[in-house]
């Protein structure tokens, strides 16, 4: 099948590569751009392991073709840490609050939380739970993921994280 040249900005760098019209964006990111932090859990847009940020919204990258991303601005887990290499607060908070176990859903979960906290810097627990409901986790039961996002939100707002009593 004929291939088409696709150009996009990923984590601040302009990149291009060849893709068949049917190539999924997640395959392009993983196979062509070699950014393997974005994971595949279902390829049917249910699990959210492949969540990236595309032009300012969270997108499941298995739900787009690579050619649809022509000219777009994408951020993946590899582009979340600060330019100087220090971790983003969300990455730090997921570790502090034990918000991950096998690590497979983590990149998608962090990318979704990253956008969520820009849409809503002070989300309630309920808003966080709804906000990440497109991302499945099989290990944590979500409780510590929610806590991680609350922890990050507090830190980003310069507040102290107060853990809700059980």
């Amino acid at each position: 099948m004929a291939k088409i040249n696709v150009t996009m900005t990923v984590n601040g760098e302009e990149v291009s590569g060849l893709a068949e019209p049917r190539t999924l964006l997640v395959h392009f990111i993983r196979e062509t751009l070699n950014l393997t932090g974005t994971h595949i859990g279902c390829e049917t847009s249910h699990c959210g392991a492949c969540t990236i940020d595309l032009d300012g919204v969270s997108v499941k990258s298995c739900t787009r073709f690579a050619v649809q991303a022509e000219g777009s601005h994408i951020r993946t887990i590899e582009g979340i840490a600060h330019a100087d290499g220090t971790l983003h607060q969300l990455q730090e908070s997921f570790r502090q609050m034990h918000g991950l176990q096998c690590g497979y859903c983590t990149p998608g979960m962090i990318l979704r939380a990253w956008r969520l906290l820009q849409e809503n810097p002070r989300p309630s627990e309920d808003e966080i739970r709804h906000g990440i409901s497109g991302n499945l986790c099989r290990c944590t039961g979500y409780q510590n993921i929610v806590k991680s996002i609350q922890h990050a939100a507090a830190a980003l707002n310069g507040e102290t994280f107060a853990e809700a009593a059980q």
Partner: peptide, 21 residues
């Protein structure tokens, strides 16, 4: 103790089978 594994997993630097090329 905070997990050692998380440092790589939170940065997308895990090495899962499908990452092998």
């Amino acid at each position: 103790r905070k997990r050692v594994e998380d440092v790589r997993f939170t940065q997308g630097r895990g090495n899962y089978v499908d990452d092998i090329k």
